[in-house]
Structures are given as structure tokens and as C-alpha cells.
Write a protein that binds this DNA or RNA. Structure first.
Length: 641
RNA sequence: GGCGGUGUAGCUCAGCGGUUAGAGCACUCGGCUCAUACCCGGGGUGUCGCUGGUUCAAUUCCAGCCACCGCUACCA
């Protein structure tokens, strides 16, 4: 049994309803960087990521694709794993919430909390969108009581549910946060969470009956366990479910749960309280990072601005992408992504500063010393300052890495790169060579190579594929004892080493060409926001289940006290229909009088604001624009097929 | 509405009760030539959001205002 210090870090388990984007890549790269760094510092590390595969959305997506949920997610998980391979993610385990051991442990823990009385049966009442089959809060539905997703009216609904007695633990939670001020980071998020809990905690609804793609509640098979309860358990089940349980003994509690800022509350309130109820130790800290914004805007499928990390890696190389992410995102802040920003980072930091430093170092050793690193026999007046800085950097860099301030750590490290470039200009080895000052020349070239060794070791957790290329060029590929954190002692690089000059590490990006290539999209193409992806194939029979009819608008009025609802009286052949539609933001009530529109005539009626809506009008929506579908010159009642 | 935060060079941000307010990028001039048209050096603009207050002294503390942002539970 090792007595090394341990380090357990996790990412969220991602939801396989779609492929992952650059934001997910950020979280996972950050966790991977941290795990590699800790490993290098001698920690026994465990790095967990995975997938959160249950829930209604998956079930619906699978159904739409004509697949079983398990089959559906299996295919997406392949893409997840492929992405992590491309990004050089070295995780120790990949947990899936459909893994047998996860399901078993999740049920055990749910049962335990139930047995001790902290889960009880009651009734959940909320605003419900039948269309989206989703509950919403008062705040989410707003005054108009419309679905925040689809804009249709919602209704109140009751559901028998199990509730988790969160409120019971509120005081204990607050005390814990007082005693552990670094548990929630950054501090701004901590304050938000504390403020939230101070306003009082309600018990959490932790079971669902409206769908069945989930882990069954062990003592009541009508219910499945709420996806967040299910998902959060992964951090423990992954350890407990493996082998003899020694992983759990060794690594729990986790040192860091790395999460995006959007899911901080689940990780800092619900999860700790679950652990309190289970009488298990809490993790050391939850770090909520910002988002990767695209042109200062949130990434989203509907905006069509989702960035695929695999494309970036293929185009720019994985090391560059990882460096960009880790360098660009400030602690707790959002960062911007654009291809130009990425290109600038690559050119300035990686190509010009770092890559070129290696290039000029190997270039001169090759040219002036027959490719051999000679011993530093005669120092120049510039050596002391450079060496002092190199010696001081590991401590500074390490302190920032320990605090997970990756961007600052890299910024600190690059000060040494810049210093080395300046050192070369000051010492001017080409002049020393010309003057025949071999002693000084060999010192300068030695120092340059040694700085490169230092920087490369420290940069390795961020760019894990980089060192072997550099070691090969510096001629120390085989000497692994020179690649470690412990070897960051100035002067370990052995004289007599034969270097082998190679290709540039990071070719410069032609930014002008990049800009030119981006331009052609601008003209006329009316800012085509990439359209929504086409839904999975359906059969003619699927379509035939819908009965679409032409209807004529006989009357239309605004529904009182709502912002979005219009009430239509429609002529459908010989009958009349009353239909509500959430389009009041787009049409005045009298605008549509007499027009022929398209109605889903066999949609199950639903009561909204006390009015029964007998169908649904079709409309097209793009961004903030909406137009109803018209069917001019056709009599009402005509069937659409 | 409630609570909290931010507002500093063209951009991203650092900073701080007290000498001429900083970094990187962008821009520009000069130098060098080992190097990936690279590196090194010089240069400039900032009413440090607005208005008051405390102080010998505020960009830095306090108040008000304006602007922007975050949180305000059961959506993964």
C-alpha cells in the first residue's frame, strides 16, 4: 500500500443527447491538466469522467431516432471517448450511469436515505408543459405561464413523488461552508450559494413517474430516481463499484469536482447534502469555471455557433488547442473563443516565443558547436539573472497550479520564455562565436537549452504531447530522469549531449489568410444562423398519425393577463375550434382575421388558463422571428398531406 | 422585485490610501540577424463609469447615481 498523497479529480459526467463541444473540452482538459500536474508532483491521482445517460430528454431523443435509449447513448458515447482520445485525456475511469455497478450503488444509497426517513412520499405540484413533458417553476413560466422552451402555455399538474429532506440539513450546510471557506470556488459563487441557502431550502423532488428511462426507485418501481440524484452518485459509485472497494477507501473524498458555472448549485448544495445524509465525508472543493463564449455569446445549438473541438485539433493540433483553453480562461471568468484569437495565441506564445526559442537554440548549437551541448565553462554577465529566474519559477508556477489558476501559471511560466529570448539578444552568442569566445558561447547555449528543459517540464501537463518532441531535439529523449519535476534543478542537463534539430514545434498561422477565408461568408448570405439540425428520420406512418387541416380564422383575441397567448376561433369545415397559441408577441389579434392557417387537428386538447385548446397552429420560427403557416385559396377542413 | 458583483489604455485584464497608474495583444519607430517575416528596445493616448463625502493625500475607503453582469431550486 502506497503512502503517497492522493488526488482525486472529477469532471461532470456529460449528457449524451448531443456530441460534445469546446466547452466540455475545456472542463475535461482542465481536469486532465490538473491530474497530470499532480501526478508529476508525486501524488497518487485518480481522474474520473463519464456520461450521464438517463432522463427524459435522452428517452425522447432515442425514441425520435427510432432507437432504444441504451442503443442511442451507446453510439454517442463512442464519440465522447473518441474526443477524449484526440484531446489526449488520460482519465483513469469512464463511468456511465447505465453501468451495473452504478445502478446498484445508486439504489443502495437511495434506499439508505429512505430507510432513515430523509426521503418521503408526497405530491409534486408545478407548471407543466405537456408538449415538452417538463415541469417548470413559477419564475420560469413567467406571468404569461408559458413554457420557456417552446413558448406554449403550461398548466398546473400534480405528480406523486418522493422528496429528499434537504431542508433538514440547511443549517449543517451553512455551518460547513463557514468552516470551509474554500469549499466553493471562486468566492463569488460561494457567496451566491450561501445567499441562496439562507433564503431557505425546500425539499427536493427526487423521483419521476412521467418517464421510465432511469434507475428505478428500489422500493417503488413506478418511479425512477431523479437524474441529478442519479448523476451525482457517480463520483462515489465509480470508486465503490470497482474491485474490492479499495479505490473508495483510498480516494474518497474527492479533492476537486470541476464543473461549469451552470451546474454549481447541484454540486455545492444538493451533492453535499446528499453526502451529509449518507454520513459520508464531503469533497475538498468544487470549482466552478466560466464558459467558452463565441464572439462574446453563449454557445448553443440553436445559434449554430457550436465549436467542434475535433475540427480544431485536426486543424491546429491538440497541444495548441489545450494551451489556448488553459491560457485563455481566467480563474472563474468566461473566455472568448474565435479562430483569430486561437491563431494569435498560437503565433505569439507557441510559435514566436516558445517554438522559436527552441529553434534558435538548436540552430546555434548545431551551427556553432557541431550539435553538441558544451559545458557552461565561462559565465557571461547576463547569466545570473536568467538562472535566478529559472530557479524561482517552479515554485511560483507550482503555487498557481495548486490553486488551479492555470492561466496565471502559464503566464508566469512564459515570463521565463521571454526572459530567455531577451537573454539571447543580450548575450548575442553569434557575436561570441565570431569573437572566438568559446567559453562564454558554450555557457550561453547551455543556459538556453536548460531553460527549455525547465519550461517544457512545466508545460507538460497542459501539452502532454509536447515533451517527447522537445526531448528528441534536445537529445535527452532516453534520459527520463531529466523529464521530471524533481529534475528542475538548474544544471542537471548533461554537457556532451548531442542535439538533433527538427521541424518547428508550432508552425505559424497565417492570420491574414484566415481572415480572408472567413470573409466570403459575409456578403448577402443573410447572416444565415446555421439551421437547427434535422431531426432523426421518421416513417410515413409516423407522419400519418398527425391530422393536419386548413382552418380559417373567424375570431382572434388576446388572452387576458398573458403576454404571449392569443385565443383563436377557427372554422374547420363545418365545425368550430377554439385554439390557443403563444404568438401574441408576433401578431396583433386582428392581423390574422380571415386568413387560412394550418392546424394539427387531432392533437390532444389541453386546458390552458381555463380555456380548452383544441389543436395547435403551425408556424415557422427562426431566432426571434415567427410566422404562421398559411394555406391560401384552400377551403377550411382540407387535409394536408 | 431581492441579494451580490463589475465599470482602469483600441482589446483582454492586473493593481493600489501616497513618488511620473501597469502587463499582454494591437499600432508605430528603431536595433539585431542565431531563429518559425522571428527576437530585443523605444513610443503614445487613459478625466482609473458619474457626483459628492472622509483624509494632509483616493483610481484605491464611504454614499448616491448611471451602465453592464451573476444568483434568485427541482432543465443534465
Amino acid at each position: 500500500m502506497s503512502d503517497k498523497k492522493t488526488f482525486y479529480i472529477t469532471t461532470p459526467i456529460y449528457y449524451p443527447s448531443d456530441n460534445l463541444h469546446i466547452g466540455h473540452a475545456y472542463t475535461t482538459v482542465a481536469a486532465d491538466t490538473m491530474a497530470r500536474y499532480k501526478k508529476m508532483r508525486g501524488f497518487d491521482t485518480y481522474f474520473l469522467t463519464g456520461s450521464d445517460e438517463h432522463g427524459q430528454k435522452i428517452q425522447r431523443r432515442a425514441h425520435a431516432a427510432g432507437k432504444q435509449p441504451q442503443e442511442f447513448v451507446n453510439e454517442i458515447i463512442i464519440n465522447f471517448k473518441h474526443l477524449w482520445r484526440v484531446l489526449e485525456i488520460d482519465n483513469d475511469d469512464f463511468i456511465r450511469t447505465t453501468d451495473e455497478h452504478h445502478i446498484r450503488i445508486c439504489q443502495e444509497l437511495f434506499q439508505k436515505i429512505y430507510d432513515q426517513g430523509d426521503i418521503y412520499k408526497s405530491e409534486y405540484t408545478g407548471w407543466y408543459c405537456t408538449d415538452c413533458e417538463t415541469f417548470f417553476t413559477e419564475l420560469q413560466v413567467g406571468e404569461g405561464h408559458v413554457c420557456p422552451d417552446c413558448g406554449r402555455a403550461v398548466e398546473t399538474m400534480k405528480e406523486e413523488s418522493y422528496f429528499f429532506r434537504m431542508n433538514k440539513y440547511a443549517d449543517r450546510w451553512l455551518q460547513f461552508m463557514t468552516d470551509n471557506p474554500d469549499f466553493i470556488r471562486p468566492e463569488s459563487r460561494r457567496n451566491e450559494m450561501i445567499n441562496f441557502v439562507r433564503q431557505g431550502l425546500e425539499d427536493l423532488c427526487v423521483s419521476r413517474t412521467t418517464f421510465d428511462w432511469g434507475i428505478p426507485v428500489p422500493f417503488d418501481q413506478k418511479h425512477v430516481i431523479y437524474v441529478w440524484f442519479d448523476a451525482l452518485i457517480n463520483y462515489i459509485s465509480a470508486l465503490k463499484g470497482q474491485g474490492d472497494g479499495s479505490l473508495y477507501e483510498k480516494f474518497w473524498p474527492a479533492d476537486v469536482h470541476l464543473v461549469g458555472k451552470d451546474i454549481i448549485r447541484f454540486h455545492t448544495i444538493i451533492w453535499p447534502i446528499m453526502l451529509m445524509a449518507l454520513d459520508l465525508p464531503l469533497p475538498e472543493c468544487v470549482l466552478g469555471h466560466g464558459w467558452v463564449l463565441i464572439d462574446s455569446d453563449k454557445m448553443s445549438k440553436s445559434k449554430g455557433n457550436v465549436i467542434d473541438p475535433i475540427y480544431l485539433c485536426e486543424k491546429y493540433g491538440v497541444e495548441a488547442v489545450r494551451y489556448f483553453l488553459m491560457r485563455e480562461m481566467g480563474y472563474g471568468l468566461d473566455c472568448n473563443y474565435s479562430e483569430e484569437l486561437l491563431g494569435r495565441r498560437i503565433n505569439n506564445d507557441l510559435a514566436n516565443d516558445y517554438g522559436n526559442l527552441l529553434s534558435r537554440t538548436t540552430g546555434m548549437i548545431e551551427k556553432f558547436q557541431g550539435s553538441v551541448i558544451e559545458p557552461p565553462v565561462e559565465p557571461t554577465e547576463f547569466d545570473a539573472e536568467l538562472i535566478a529566474m529559472a530557479k524561482a519559477i517552479p515554485e511560483k508556477f507550482g503555487r498557481l497550479m495548486d490553486k488551479m489558476e492555470w492561466a496565471n501559471a502559464l503566464s508566469e511560466l512564459w515570463k521565463l520564455v521571454n526572459k530567455a529570448n531577451k537573454y539571447i539578444d543580450d548575450a548575442a552568442p553569434w557575436a561570441l562565436n565570431k569573437a572566438g569566445q568559446q567559453g562564454k558561447l558554450s555557457s550561453v547555449l547551455y543556459n538556453m537549452a536548460e531553460v527549455l528543459r525547465f519550461v517544457t517540464i512545466m508545460a507538460a501537463p497542459v501539452m502532454p504531447g509536447l515533451p517527447k518532441r522537445v526531448w528528441r531535439q534536445l537529445g535527452i529523449a532516453e534520459q527520463t530522469q531529466l523529464h521530471t519535476w524533481e529534475s528542475l534543478e538548474w544544471g542537471r542537463l548533461p554537457a556532451g549531449t548531442k542535439i538533433s534539430r527538427g521541424e518547428p514545434l508550432f508552425p505559424r498561422i497565417d492570420l491574414a489568410a484566415l481572415a480572408a477565408e472567413a470573409k466570403p461568408e459575409a456578403p448577402e448570405a443573410p447572416a444565415a444562423p446555421a439551421m437547427e439540425p434535422i431531426a432523426p428520420t421518421c416513417t410515413i406512418d409516423d407522419f400519418a398519425r398527425l391530422d393536419l387541416r386548413v382552418v380559417k380564422v373567424l375570431a382572434c383575441e388576446k388572452v387576458a393577463n398573458t403576454d404571449k397567448l392569443l385565443k383563436f376561433t377557427l372554422e374547420l369545415g363545418t365545425e368550430q375550434r377554439t385554439v390557443l397559441s403563444g404568438i401574441a408577441e408576433f401578431y396583433q389579434p386582428d392581423e390574422l382575421l380571415g386568413k387560412n392557417l394550418v392546424l394539427i387537428a387531432n392533437l390532444q386538447p389541453v386546458k390552458i388558463r381555463g380555456i380548452e385548446s383544441q389543436g395547435m397552429l403551425l408556424s415557422a420560427m427562426e431566432g426571434k422571428k415567427l410566422r404562421v403557416i398559411e394555406a391560401p385559396d384552400m377551403p377550411s377542413g382540407a387535409k394536408i398531406s
